[in-house]
Design a protein around this nucleic acid. Sequence first.
DNA 1: CGAGCAATTGAGACAAGTCAAAGCTGGTGG
DNA 2: CCACCAGCTTTGACTTGTCTCAATTGCTCG
Lengths: 247, 247
Amino acid sequence: MTTSARLATPVMIPDHRHLGSCAHCDARPYSVCNAIPVMDMAKLAAATTTGVAPPGSCFVAEGGKADAFYNITSGTVRLFKLLPDGRRQITGFAGVGSFIGLAVSDMFTFSAEAIDLVHYCRFSRPRLRALLDDFPAMEQKLLEVTSSELMAAQEQMLLLGRKTARERLASFLIAESRQNAGCRMPRRQFALPMTRGDIADYLGLTIETVSRTLTRLRQEGLIEIPSAGDIVIVDRDGLETLAEGLT
Amino acid sequence: MTTSARLATPVMIPDHRHLGSCAHCDARPYSVCNAIPVMDMAKLAAATTTGVAPPGSCFVAEGGKADAFYNITSGTVRLFKLLPDGRRQITGFAGVGSFIGLAVSDMFTFSAEAIDLVHYCRFSRPRLRALLDDFPAMEQKLLEVTSSELMAAQEQMLLLGRKTARERLASFLIAESRQNAGCRMPRRQFALPMTRGDIADYLGLTIETVSRTLTRLRQEGLIEIPSAGDIVIVDRDGLETLAEGLT
DNA sequence: CGAGCAATTGAGACAAGTCAAAGCTGGTGG
DNA sequence: CCACCAGCTTTGACTTGTCTCAATTGCTCG
């Protein structure tokens, strides 16, 4: 899989959901923003502008100026790094509530593309800095979220460095089934918003291997695949055992 | 490479270097501690205890209670995760100034072992929390350091998911040559404190492939290997080109 | 000197990659 | 309404980079 420069359909869809204040934001319960109390919501709302990214559009570019942060309020984003010859590694998928744009230098070290229609909330760097200085609780929350991502990254290193293709797919499907489940039960059935190419570039495999491996998991009765974008987990225990590398 | 449960030589070496205050700490210039001004150094010193970990000893265990944080003041540590069957992925090496022990839940999700003789500074969780509340600058610094580690982790995902064995070794050697160089020039010659097994488990390869690949890089005139633990970079440009995946 | 561990080297096996060819599916326009 | 196109997915046949297994060499320390 190389670069995915799909043409971005330039259809701008009216963005009603963000007309209200941050208090009604769909992402609030999942986001670092909830560190700011309701009474100070106006300050939060004043620091942000909302926007929409059509499928395939790139709103953070590796090497570009790191001048803003994004909070995803709907849709799914792929975060990735490229090698000069086009090899791509997806480092994560960002969904509702994800905070994108942490950078140490003044340049982004990764790119972000909308997979489906993405709504986001944008903070300019200086405004976010001011907000964090005003609300240490938000900085603390940001540290928590970042630590949590670092741990997920370490888990992914284990996957990329030491797991087989079967184990990678099993781990991926288990993780996706828990996506946004919070403390609720992981889902038995769920949609995969990304393509086989995205999954391959996330798991360090090729499209063909992803496809073949999913087919095999289906044949073995661990999962069902109603359509390419939908998964049903039939044997969760079996899949989890596989994901842990047992068998 | 499976687990590395070398017997920890139980030799306790007197720890003169830490008898003084944090102001004289070797790690201070590299550490998050420098966010605390000199005038408040006493508070910092009061929150910590120092310790020594002999080579091979494990001082953070995956699944263990995350009750403390460690700041490395000398030596090198390997951070890793294990699969139940013993496959190991080293997620990083921590040297002087590294801060180890961030955890989101109350359990560690990784292990840490001393490679050589390690001196550290230990903060209990509640004491660190109190310190961070007292000094928001330290929390901010911690966020910076954590973001920086997250970016390094993403770079490593690119390596593990998409680079060849040659490219992995080239990237590793280039990175090691910059280790602790700060803004100074990267070093032409340097020591590798870790074994071939550690390198293999860090790069997602086997010992044999690491050895063969290093031999080949040497034969091609890119590096010299005075002894197994020492590297000389002969053709830095060539090595960097290789690390980027060109050629 | 020699035991024990780390590193190197070789030969053969295999998991995943590459190349190639059909299927499928959703959108467009005649 | 349906044929057709384009892109995604699946499947097959073959290749290959890395792993596995095994033997040898080299180094360190008692």
